[in-house]
């Protein structure tokens, strides 16, 4: 079990992490999600032992790691650009960690072919790194990281360099491999879809602090802050003041803004939302309709799954179900 408590870390004179607490259970896949500069990579590097903490404790199974050097931690780390050794073949790259742990040669050979099968690289052992495609390099990096069976496997934006299609395919494969192996994993990304597809728990970070954490479903159902809602791609985030002036539903309790999920709208003669359709785009199983309410309200986006689809210029009157109204705290930046 990885325990991080009261962690503070600096990166080139700037405080990158302020007093952070986080625990990762064995076998859990945790994704650190956040925009660039939020401290997620620094956190990863501190856990790996590549950066020093300015304050706080990082421990594994109650053993403080402060005095344990990088190479003795027994963790694995996969870099964004893979950092494959250009002077070694695919096989020799994968064998590297095992060699460092002084495993006997036959065992190394067996383990190398085993992990090459896991990541689907059979027959590529003799290739040099320069002969591989981006996706293949990514697999070699994964194989190299899992070969020594690390206690904790870490990923620093491992799919960032790949195109969208490849990324979507590899996320699924990666998820299957990680759950099959039962590895404890810490995964850094700025892509929320990647995080949601992989993680048991998502840790959303902002400016060196944890903004919110929970299972993907929890985060998706209930972003607590305006930043979380914006970062997760929610639309229709309206200041409470504006919402009240427009007569739109506002939940009880202390909130700074309200999110109206585009999915939750339906047509109603008595609805609180009124506006004219100003644009309409087709999205496969639904239409995204933008309506322009009366001032001072901003435009709203509505997902329309009903027939007939509203025409441009048509006046709409809508209501929203209570679950699709989410209160959030925090102001716009």
């Amino acid at each position: 079990m990885l325990e991080i408590s009261g962690l503070k870390a600096c990166y080139e004179d700037v405080v990158a992490i302020h007093h952070l607490d986080l625990t990762i259970e064995k076998g859990e896949i945790v994704c650190l999600l956040g925009p660039s500069g939020c401290g997620k990579s620094t956190l990863l590097r501190v856990v790996a032992g590549l950066e020093k903490a300015a304050a706080g404790v990082v421990s594994w199974d109650d053993e403080d790691l402060a005095r344990v050097r990088v190479h003795s931690r027994g963790f694995g780390l996969m870099f964004q650009d893979y950092a494959l050794f250009p002077h070694r073949t695919v096989e020799a790259n994968i064998a590297f960690g095992l060699e460092m742990h002084r495993r006997p040669k036959p065992e190394i050979a067996a383990r190398v072919s085993e992990v090459m099968a896991i990541v689907g690289l059979e027959g590529y052992g003799d290739r040099t790194i320069g002969q591989l495609s981006g996706g293949q390099q990514q697999r070699v990096a994964l194989a190299r990281a899992i070969a020594p069976s690390p206690k904790l496997l870490m990923f620093d934006e491992p799919l960032g360099a790949l195109d969208r299609n490849m990324r979507e395919r590899l996320v699924i494969e990666l998820h299957d491999i990680l759950t099959t192996l039962g590895t404890t994993a810490l995964y850094v990304t700025h892509d929320q879809e990647e995080a949601f597809a992989l993680a048991d728990r998502v840790v959303l970070m902002r400016d060196g602090r944890i903004e919110q954490m929970g299972s993907p479903a929890e985060l998706w159902a209930r972003p607590r802050t305006r930043f979380a809602a914006e970062f997760l791609g929610f639309r229709n985030i309206i200041d409470v003041q504006t919402a009240k002036e427009c007569g739109w539903p506002v939940p009880e309790g202390e909130t700074d803004a309200v999110v109206y999920r585009p999915d939750g709208f339906e047509e109603s003669e008595t609805g609180a939302f009124k506006g004219v359709v100003v644009s309409r785009t087709y999205r496969g199983d639904h239409f995204v309709v933008r309506i322009s309410p009366t001032d001072p309200a901003p435009d709203l986006l509505i997902h329309v799954r009903w027939q007939p689809v509203p025409e441009l210029g048509q006046e709409l009157r809508l209501t929203i179900d209570a679950e699709s109204v989410i209160p959030v705290v925090g102001n716009a930046e």
Binding site: A48, G49, L50, R69, V70, H71, S72, R73, G74, F75, G76, L77, F79, D81, A83, F85, F96, G97, M100, H101, R144, A145, P148
Partner: peptide, 11 residues
């Protein structure tokens, strides 16, 4: 990264 990578792998 190569040096760090080798270090993480136990070098």
């Amino acid at each position: 990264n190569l040096r760090e990578s080798a270090a993480v792998l136990g070098a």
